[in-house]
């Protein structure tokens, strides 16, 4: 306990020294109702890095993404999350978004009656307002929208339609990346953005993501398939199992998983937990 406290303080000091550390997740635990889903996650992400998270179904990947973006159906029962050195766990979802956290949803919701364009304009301008910037007028907004639509080769008609309503699975995913391009976040969390995309769309979306990569922007890419990581090459690959990161490595780890599956990971988990707590 004493040791823990000391650790906390020292890491905070570190954060201020090394300003490149964007996200720092420490022993994060979260549950829904009685069920604990995240069992102590530790993860450090520096600006400009791409981290891939893999792991079996139900291991807690989407839950981690939701907790980071502030979904309140999950109770955070322990740990902390620092974003640019600030604890964000008490912030509302909108405040986190305004600080630059973006989640591309695994299952984007359909919102009938709210047009994509109106929705995005509201979002862009609320984020601008939080930064003390003037709102974009309709003309500038349209120019920006046109430009960013090209990035994911999105059809203009889709912006006129209600948010995701009647969109195909692939179109929804493309729309998520389009929104990401519009909102210019610092930390982009992509939750299985590749699932549901055809081969061409996967390439287009991946190219869009790569175009958005920069020294200031970091990515967490949740995926089941090594294929995506051929396009978006990660700096690190982590395996999430039973609500813990049980193994971390470079992009080679993804290849190894593709080949061997997860069984060997499940067996070594006890050791790994200890390792990641150190």
């Amino acid at each position: 306990m004493k040791e823990n406290k000391f650790k906390k303080n020292s890491s905070q000091a570190l954060t201020t020294q090394h300003e490149t550390r964007m996200l720092s997740i420490k022993n994060l635990k979260a549950s829904i109702g009685e069920k604990q889903i995240l069992n102590g996650i530790n993860l450090e992400i520096k600006a400009g890095e791409v981290h891939a998270i893999m792991g079996p179904n139900g291991s807690g990947k989407s839950t981690l993404a939701s907790v980071l973006s502030g979904r309140d159906v999950f109770d955070v029962t322990g740990g902390e999350v620092l974003f640019d050195g600030e604890n964000i766990l008490d912030l509302s979802p909108e405040d986190r978004a305004r600080k630059g956290i973006f989640l591309a949803f695994q299952y984007p919701v359909e919102i009938p009656g709210v047009s994509n364009a109106n929705f995005l304009k509201t979002a862009v301008n609320e984020i601008r307002k939080s930064k003390g910037l003037e709102p974009l007028d309709s003309k500038d907004f349209l120019v920006m929208m046109k430009e960013r639509m090209k990035l994911v080769e999105m059809d203009k008609a889709m912006t006129q339609r209600s948010v995701n309503e009647g969109f195909s699975g692939g179109e929804k995913k493309r729309n998520e990346i389009f929104q990401m391009a519009m909102l210019e976040p610092k930390l982009c969390i992509l939750d299985e953005t590749d699932s549901g995309l055809d081969i061409d769309a996967l390439r287009i979306v991946a190219n869009g993501v790569n175009a958005l990569r920069s020294k200031e922007r970091s990515f967490v890419v949740i995926t089941h398939y090594q294929r995506l990581l051929d396009y978006i090459v990660p700096d690190f690959v982590h395996v999430l199992y039973n609500g813990r990161i049980v193994k971390s490595g470079t992009k080679d780890l993804a290849l190894e998983l593709e080949e061997k599956g997860y069984d060997w990971i499940k067996e070594i988990k006890a050791d790994a937990v200890e390792f990641s707590n150190k």
């Binding site: 502030g70 979904r71 909108e94 986190r96 919102i111 709210v114 995005l120 979002a123 984020i127």
Partner: peptide
């Protein structure tokens, strides 16, 4: 939650819906 996760404030999001 979807709307709020894009930076739209709670009141505004409710009103949009």
């Amino acid at each position: 939650f979807y709307l709020r996760s894009r930076g739209i404030g709670e009141e505004n999001a409710k009103s949009l819906l």
